[in-house]
Amino acid sequence: MAHFNVSPRTFFAIIALIGLSACASISAVGPGPVEIGKSYRISTGEVWSKYPPQSRTNTAATMTIDGTILNTLSFVDGLKPGESIIYTSDRDKLIPKYRADMSASELVDFVLDSYSAQGLANGKMTDLRPEKFGTLDGYRFDFTGAYKSGLELSGTGKIAQQGDNLHIIIFYAPSEYYYGLRKDEVDGILASVSLL
């Protein structure tokens, strides 16, 4: 779902293709509780636009308020060992894969390395601390990076393992204006996680 390569120069070409394809079913969610996959629920304070699950990237939901280039909130529900959060049609391509025995910093590296493999530039974890994910012991992390075009990004997220499976919530937005614009809302969402 992450797309870090958007440049205006290629944009007309891309939208021409999208214009031809049928419109994706984007639905309104919130304000209020939203169930993510089969494992957990969050609660929003505002109306978000929600894209359907993408089995190819093991993404349970992707949500945005202003458009995914301007803010993206992505959810993974119970990633299994050996799975990845990157889609590639190239079966021979080497990509980061989740393992159940990863340490906290390895889990965050796994997420950020996966984003880097999709074009996130200069991805860097800037904070990592323990934080509950519902009743699970989880970790909260912040990061910075940039679209390849040079537009700088800030992000935050939360991860936790339930048994051998991994839940991920990750948010990113341009550091200029948009991250700050939605930060309180996203902090509220990250604090609202409850297991189903």
């Binding site: 906290a104 910093s105 974890m125 800037t126 904070d127 990592l128 601390r129 323990p130 970790y139 912040d142």
Partner: peptide, 9 residues
């Protein structure tokens, strides 16, 4: 270190 709180835990 960005993960100081984690390491302290």
């Amino acid at each position: 270190a960005p993960d100081r709180l984690l390491i302290q835990s």
